[in-house]
Write a protein that binds this DNA or RNA. Structure first.
Length: 422
RNA sequence: GGAGAGAUGGCAGAGUGGUCGAAUGCGGCGGUCUUGAAAACCGUUGAGGCCUCGCGGUCUCCGGGGGUUCGAAUCCCUCUCUCUCCGCCA
C-alpha cells in the first residue's frame, strides 16, 4: 500500500507507474484522492463536534460532583442532540475511510526508475548470463529420467492428492534434502537467521505481504478455519515482525526459511507444466530482508548476487533477468529473476526471484523502526528465493546426466549425500 | 472438545462510570554530583490521524469488533489470544 500523502504529492508518478505495470487505466488514483479529500474535511468536522461533546461531558461531571443536578440536566439535553448529529457523521466518516483504504489497496507499487518500461516478458532485460548453456545432445528431459528410474511418482501423487503433487522416491528425496540443507547452511553462514515458520497463515498476514487482494486465487484456502496455505515462506516470515517497532541498531534483519509452498496455478497446462516445471506443492528456501530505507536497493543487489552464487556453486548455467515494469507484479519496485538452463528441454527455467518492495508491504503491516532521533518510520522489505527446488532438481538431472545415463551429484552436495552418483 | 481465570504504556503492575492517556516501580533519555563510572538526587519518557510553515490545537487508541451512557480502561454482547484443570493426541 502506498502512502496516501505520497500519492497526493506525486500523483503523476503513481499514475504512470500504474500504466507501466500494465493496468488499463489509472482512474483509481483520482478516486482515492477525491475520497481522501472528503474524508479529511469530514474528520475536521467530526473532531470539532467531538471536542464540544467532550467538553460538555466534563462540565456535566463537574456540576454533578457539586450537586447542581438541574444545571447538569440542561447540559445533558444539549449534548444528547449533539450526539445524535455525531452518530450520523461518524457513520459517514467510517464509510469514507473504508472506501479510501479499499481503493488504496488496489494501487500497485511504483516501479523504480532503473526498471525498463515494457508490457510483456519479451521486454525483460537480460542482466547477464553465467556459464555455457549445454547442448541437448544425448540428454533426456528430466521427466524421462525420473520415470525410468522410478524416482518421482507423478501418477501415485495424482491418485493420492491430485496432479502437481508428486512423490519423491529414494535418491531424489535424498537429493532434495541435501539441497535444502546446503541452501540453509550457506544462508546461515551469510548472516541469515534460520527460522521455521507456520505453513498456514491468517488473512491479516496474507494481506500484509500483498497476496490479498491482488493474488488470492493463487492460494489454497481452508475456509473452516479461515487459513491460507502459504504460497511462499515470504508470507509468514515477512509477517514475523508485523505491527512491531524495531530499534534501529537491530537492523538489518535477515531471515532464511525452508518451507513447502502451495500454489493453485489455475489455468496452467501443456509442456510448461510437464514434469517438475510447475507443481502445486514444491519446496523452497526463501530469504527475507527487513532493512533501513536507504539500504534497500543495495540489499537487493547483494541478495541477487547471493542467489546467483548458489547456482554458481552448483555449476548450473543461468541467466539473470531484470524484469520490465509490465512483468514485475503488483507489490515490487524492482525485481530480478534467475533462470537456470535446462539442457534436456533447451529452455530457461525460473528458480529465483529477488524483489524489493520498498515500504509497500511494511506500511500494510505497520512494520516500523525508531531512528536515532526517536522518530518512528516505515521499514523496507525484500525477499528472494535461495532457491526453489523442483527446477533446480530438473536442471541437475539434465545437466549432470552422463552419457551412460548415470546422474552425477554436484560437488557441493556430495558431503550432504555421501555419494557421487544418484 | 469441556470447565474456570485473564489480556492495561518497552517490562512489571495499580486503576471497576466523570478532572485517567492512565498511579507506582523497573528500564530508556537528559542533568546534578564525580578525574571517570556506580550509587544517590532532580527532570523527562506511548502510538496514530487531522489542521498548522512553525509554535501549537484537536481527535482516536487500555487485546479486536460492536453496544449501553451526556460521559467507558471501568458496564453489556461478541471474537481472538494467553494461563490453570479435565479429556484427546504426534
Amino acid at each position: 500500500m502506498l502512502d496516501v500523502n505520497y500519492i497526493r504529492e506525486h500523483t503523476n508518478v503513481v499514475k504512470q507507474g500504474m500504466l507501466n505495470k500494465g493496468e488499463k487505466n489509472s482512474a483509481v488514483v483520482d478516486e482515492v484522492l477525491e475520497v481522501d479529500e472528503k474524508w479529511r474535511s469530514m474528520v475536521q468536522k467530526v473532531d470539532e463536534l467531538r471536542n464540544e461533546s467532550n467538553t460538555k461531558a466534563k462540565e456535566i461531571g463537574n456540576l454533578m460532583s457539586k450537586g447542581k443536578k438541574e444545571e447538569a440536566q440542561k447540559v445533558i439535553q444539549h449534548t444528547s442532540k449533539l450526539k445524535e448529529k455525531l452518530k450520523g457523521l461518524e457513520e459517514e466518516l467510517r464509510a469514507l475511510k473504508s472506501t479510501r483504504d479499499d481503493l488504496l489497496l488496489r494501487i500497485p507499487n511504483v516501479p523504480h526508475e532503473s526498471v525498463p518500461v515494457g508490457h510483456s516478458e519479451e521486454e525483460n532485460q537480460v542482466y547477464h548470463t553465467w556459464g555455457e548453456p549445454y547442448d541437448k545432445e544425448w540428454r533426456k528431459p528430466h521427466w524421462e529420467v525420473v520415470e525410468e528410474a522410478g524416482w518421482i511418482d507423478f501418477e501415485r501423487g495424482a491418485k493420492v492428492a491430485g496432479a502437481g503433487f508428486p512423490f519423491y522416491v529414494g535418491p531424489i528425496a535424498l537429493l532434495q534434502r541435501a539441497l535444502i540443507n546446503y541452501f540453509l547452511n550457506k544462508a546461515t553462514e551469510h548472516g541469515f537467521t534460520e527460522i521455521q515458520a507456520p505453513y498456514f497463515v491468517n488473512e491479516d498476514s496474507a494481506r500484509g505481504t500483498g497476496q490479498i487482494p491482488d493474488k488470492e486465487d493463487m492460494m489454497y484456502v481452508i475456509p473452516r478455519d479461515e487459513l491460507f496455505a502459504i504460497p511462499t515462506a515470504e508470507v509468514p516470515v515477512t509477517n514475523f515482525h508485523r505491527d512491531e517497532i524495531v530499534e534501529e541498531d537491530q537492523l538489518p534483519l535477515f531471515y532464511v526459511a525452508y518451507t513447502p509452498c502451495w500454489r493453485r496455478e489455475a489455468g496452467s497446462y501443456g509442456k510448461d507444466v510437464r514434469g517438475l516445471n510447475r507443481l502445486h506443492q514444491f519446496d523452497k528456501v526463501e530469504l527475507v530482508k527487513i532493512v533501513h530505507p536507504d539500504r534497500a536497493y543495495d540489499e537487493l543487489e547483494s541478495l541477487r548476487e547471493y542467489a546467483e552464487s548458489l547456482l554458481q556453486d552448483l555449476n548450473l548455467p543461468y541467466r539473470t533477468l531484470l524484469m520490465c515494469t509490465g512483468d514485475m507484479g503488483f507489490t515490487q519496485t524492482k525485481k530480478y529473476d534467475l533462470e537456470v538452463w535446462s539442457p534436456g528441454q533447451s529452455r530457461w527455467l525460473e528458480v529465483s526471484s529477488c524483489s524489493n518492495f520498498g515500504s509497500f508491504q511494511a506500511r500494510r503491516m505497520q512494520l516500523r523502526y525508531r531512528d536515532e532521533k526517536g522518530k518512528i518510520r516505515i521499514l523496507h522489505t525484500l525477499n528472494g528465493s535461495g532457491l526453489a527446488l523442483p527446477r533446480v532438481v530438473a536442471a541437475i538431472l539434465e545437466t549432470y546426466q552422463q552419457e551412460d545415463g548415470q546422474i552425477k551429484v554436484p560437488r557441493v552436495l556430495q558431503p550432504f549425500m555421501g555419494r557421487e552418483y544418484l
